[in-house]
């Protein structure tokens, strides 16, 4: 193969790659369009968020693991950033829905004198029709004869699935003591 052949081949390859990139860019734009709600009536409102928050508080009062599980989409990524002692950075854990619910359920099982406080809910509608809900949750309890508890700064992304408003993403900034 001479230099010219090589150059021609190189140009052809470049053109092919360009076409590929353009196609990919189109696909990406299209998928971005697909991720928008097809029906704007499905977009969650602040009122949807308030109702969800009320359900969440009811679930906590009832300490119902089944209700908590039903409020979370099975495939939702659930991340906990656990604050560490001293200057250490927080450690992030990704949990399945079952393990996340287990964390709450087993605490309710072993702990006594449980007191919960939810505060500062904020509702932020997102461009894709979901709704971001942020709040702070403080739980104090007695665990194995020790006063302990947790504080979670929780950020939930809510969306409608099969007609129900559920958590599709969760991030907890958690301090345990």
């Amino acid at each position: 193969m001479n230099v010219n052949d090589a150059l021609v081949r190189h140009t052809l390859v470049r053109h092919s790659m360009l076409r590929l990139l353009i196609s990919l860019a189109c696909l990406c734009s299209a998928s971005a369009l697909w991720s928008q709600p097809a029906d704007t009536d499905n977009a969650l409102t602040r009122r949807d968020g308030e109702l969800f928050f009320q359900r969440y508080q009811d679930m906590l009062s009832a300490r119902s693991a089944d209700q908590l599980s039903a409020m979370i989409a099975e495939d939702a990524p659930l991340r906990i950033a656990l604050q560490q002692p001293g200057d250490e950075p927080a450690q992030t854990f990704t949990l399945t829905r079952a393990r996340f619910v287990q964390l709450r359920r087993t605490l309710w099982h072993f702990a006594t004198d449980i007191r919960q406080r939810l505060e500062s809910p904020r509702y932020t509608p997102q461009a894709d029709g979901s709704l971001k809900l942020t709040f702070t949750e403080t739980e104090r309890h007695t665990l194995f004869n020790r006063d302990s508890g947790q504080r979670n700064v929780t950020t939930l992304t809510l969306a409608r699935r099969d007609g129900e408003v559920v958590v599709v993403d969760l991030f907890n900034d958690t301090t345990l003591w």
């Binding site: 991340r79 656990l82 450690q91 992030t92 854990f93 990704t94 949990l95 079952a98 393990r99 287990q102 964390l103 087993t106 605490l107 099982h109 072993f110």
Partner: peptide, 14 residues
């Protein structure tokens, strides 16, 4: 396994 308290996976980074 579903009865264990503080049953946490290893940190994502580790």
């Amino acid at each position: 396994e579903s009865e264990m308290l503080f049953f946490l996976p290893p940190p994502d980074a580790d």
